[in-house]
Amino acid sequence: MLELRLLQGGLLKKVLEAMKDLVNDANFDCSPTGFSLQAMDSSHVALVSLLLRSEGFEHYRCDRNVSMGMNLNNMAKMLRCAGNDDIVTLKADDGSDCITFMFENPSQDKIADFEMKLMDIDSEHLGIPDAEYQSIVRMPAAEFARICRDLSTIGDTVLISVSKEGVQFSTRGDMGTANIVCRRTTTVDKPEEDVIIEMEEPVSLTFALRYLNSFTKATPLATQVTISMSSDLPMVIEYRIEGMGYIRYYLAPKIDE
């Protein structure tokens, strides 16, 4: 028996919007720790890792570890039928081939049940090493989204270079080039607007902008985004979900031939 009740149903809606363009089908893993997912995009260039910890749910019952295969587009469609302020409950009986999404409006006078078929998905988890990254940048999530969107109008890839002073995003295309530098900030009164750089070593890596633009669908989940890079690893873009966990995107770099 699985029963997960989340007071902020809007959060689950945002989570699905943040994953559905990257991944078609994925297994959600439910354990006493929480509700999680790990999946790659079809070309195996990007990986998304989601964790919603059990403590973040108003009610969390998961009698045994279960893996439920879902089509993320269909799940997103069903969740779009929930109001942003609705309470969302996920329910599944042991061995059932479907999951029920129950939506309750804040005044509790409208209750909706949506039942979705589960799928058998053959997927293997990858071991993500616990790495110390050479450069970590924390910046406003909306600013990062804006930069990725702007640069993708000029070029297909972005060179991200981190130094002690700041982070530089550069691209080039048929019409010309673009460079955006975000300097490290030192203000303390508005931490959500800060650009913070923790650098062990300067890093410069190239990434495909279309994946970064897909990751920025998670922007409504967090005010800040953390970008971690090392020269020999995929980058990690993390959006922390307050009180619940995180959504992390791993992106393999472009490598010089």
């Binding site: 260039v45 990007a46 990858l126 995929p234 490598i255």
Partner: peptide, 14 residues
């Protein structure tokens, strides 16, 4: 030119 690498080049099966 540059070539797109894949996640599986870096992360193995758990």
């Amino acid at each position: 030119g540059s070539k797109q690498s894949t996640i599986t080049k870096f992360f193995g099966k758990a």
